[in-house]
Amino acid sequence: CVPEIDFSGIVCDLRGTKVKDFNTGDRVFGIGPIGFRNVGHGVLREYILAKHDHMTKVPDNISLKDAACFPATGYTAYCFLVEKAKLKKGDRVFINGGSGAVGVMAIQLARTIVGSTGLVVATCSPAKTDIIRNLGADEEHYSSRPFDVILDTVGNDHALYSNSPAYLTPAGLFCTIGMVEIGSTVWSATKRLLQLLSAMIVPVYLGGVPRRHIFEPLNIVHSRFVAMAQLVEEGAFKAVIDSTYKFTDALDAYDRVMSRKVTGKVVIEVNDLE
């Protein structure tokens, strides 16, 4: 099975297709088959067949290396903060897991949207506080007014949601992205999935938490992906690269991911096509 879904590259053949919005030689970035474990082919290879509505052109001011960091994580941050939570200027946002791949995107995007009158609070390990503060986070520890939006990019502790009435406004939205940690068992992953489903469907009069909760798998909508790319071009968020590996050193890249010390993205250079 060829893994991974986030890619950048160059369009090299349009023969046999009805695609009109790309030309040979275009720099593109996008998301490959999300269920690659089922179909057997992800994007960590030299050539792929990509769905035209799962990708778009790379903005001229972004390198192909940086572009590879955005597809799934930038799109996820965009969908939850902009499309679902409808974040606006002055809002207060809490991001659990601020130094992860989605977290670094979410902090930057949230900072751009809420502006100087809003608040972006994030958690991270002590060694990474300077990094996420430079991305736009205001505080690492919260102790004042409730938040309008909570984005949980870690997702391993249901108590963060079940206790949320203490720190999330009644009209606020709790978004869960992370669900399965490295090393999870089938049982722990199933239990977590059931918790997330119950959080969305159990009404308050049956003991549900009186705060709105959403959790949904990655679902690519081309117009949203293009909107995310527009924000990348405008500088709303930038790539945060933890480390870069050659294609032949891919296993070392996975060792780095498994170390749990990653800040942002681990990138593999398959062919430097710049």
Binding site: V11, D13, G16, V43, E46, Y47, L49, A68, A72
Partner: peptide, 27 residues
């Protein structure tokens, strides 16, 4: 393992030569 270059495209697909890939630990 040698992975062959795709030679045919569906109507909604394009052939892309990969430059960079970023890893997703949670997927």
């Amino acid at each position: 393992v040698e992975v062959p270059i795709p030679t045919t495209c569906a109507d909604d697909e394009v052939l892309v030569q990969i430059s960079h890939v970023s890893l997703n630990s949670a997927i």
